[in-house]
């Protein structure tokens, strides 16, 4: 700031050119970090994905689009994509419905303050620890879940995570245990911001409970529901920790999600070039889902993440 310019109107002084430059100085460090941890690795990955790059062997050679061609014909890769999509299908609707029910129960209770701190604990529990706790609870002989299933005469006679037919629902159950509270707290925040006068007016008009829910509550919660769906979708796409600790992708390839297969390919089979191509594929899918949600949010007139 120039002290000598005191004759200038004060308002004018903040509009000085150094003021405008400040914005760039402030974001420079973050841009630098973004380049190191995102831009450069992404570009590098594009390069790697066109290489034949085996971990441990010093020779890497240009491979053209061979890695991408391999993706198209790799049955195991398509299997992992199907598993990832199935997990989305098994988790999102259940978590959304349960989350709404729980949020409404909490909203109706005068004492929700006392339950919330306990209910959110699954959300912050280290996912890999969650995986191990459930691995223990799924044991067919002494596991707690198997025990309860026996009490209910529902026990199929095997460990749910050791059978291809039940392993995905089992993983979805673990994910639901961990993330329903997240859906719940977000929707609860939405419910509590609704003016109670809206409800009273509807009740006076003689709307049934279900009518009020469908025509008033749900539409008013639209933005929170979109936020929840967005976060849950991207988090299920990246699910890794729980599966790794629970089944390592097994039995066979029964729970091998995209992320698990990528890790195996790169760091067990040591084929970094191919894993790089898979990473590119994952980037594209995640971006597609995110863009779709953002578009949806915009068309619904919600300015997401204001």
């Amino acid at each position: 700031m120039y002290r000598s310019e005191d004759t200038e109107p004060k308002k004018h002084r903040i509009r000085h050119w150094s003021y405008w430059k400040t914005g760039y100085i402030l974001i420079a460090p973050v841009l630098f970090v973004l380049i190191i941890v995102n831009l450069y690795p992404s570009l590098y990955q594009i390069f790697i994905s066109f290489m034949s790059y085996k971990l441990g062997s010093p020779i890497s050679s240009f491979n053209g689009i061979a890695n991408y061609q391999k993706l198209l014909t790799d049955v195991r890769f398509w299997n992992s994509l199907v598993i990832t999509l199935k997990l989305l299908l098994y988790t999102l609707p259940v978590q959304l419905v349960l989350g709404i029910i729980l949020a409404m129960l909490l909203d109706a209770s005068r004492y929700h303050k006392y339950f919330l701190p306990l209910l959110v604990l699954p959300v912050v529990t280290t996912p890999v620890v969650v995986g191990y706790i459930f691995q223990y609870m799924f044991r067919e002989d002494y596991g707690l879940i198997s025990y309860f299933l026996r009490l209910l005469h529902l026990f199929p006679g095997y460990n749910l995570t050791a059978n291809t037919g039940t392993v995905l629902p089992a993983i979805a159950m673990v994910d639901t245990w961990q993330w329903t509270p997240f859906v719940m707290i977000v929707l609860l925040a939405g419910l509590q911001s609704l003016p109670s006068s809206v409800y009273e007016a509807a009740r006076v008009d003689g709307g049934s409970w279900w009518d009020i829910f469908l025509k008033i509550t749900l539409p008013l919660l639209k933005s929170q529901i979109l936020v929840v769906l967005l976060f849950r979708t991207v988090d299920v796409l990246r699910i890794f920790d729980t599966i790794f600790a629970l089944t390592r992708g097994g039995p066979g390839t029964g729970s091998e999600s995209l992320t698990i297969y990528l890790q195996l390919t790169g760091f067990r089979f040591r084929n970094l070039g191919y894993a790089g191509a898979m990473g590119m594929f994952l980037l594209v899918i995640a971006s597609l889902f995110t863009t779709a949600f953002m578009k949806l949010a915009k068309s619904e007139g919600i300015e997401e993440e204001k």
Binding site: P41, Q45, R238, L262, G276, G279, L282
Partner: peptide
């Protein structure tokens, strides 16, 4: 654009770019 770029880091699975991280 910068804000969306930053947000995209939350949306993309971190494991998708683990290979270059490892080599770097």
């Amino acid at each position: 654009t910068i804000l969306m770029w930053i947000l995209s880091l939350r949306m993309i699975p971190p494991i998708a770019i683990v290979v270059p991280f490892y080599l770097m």
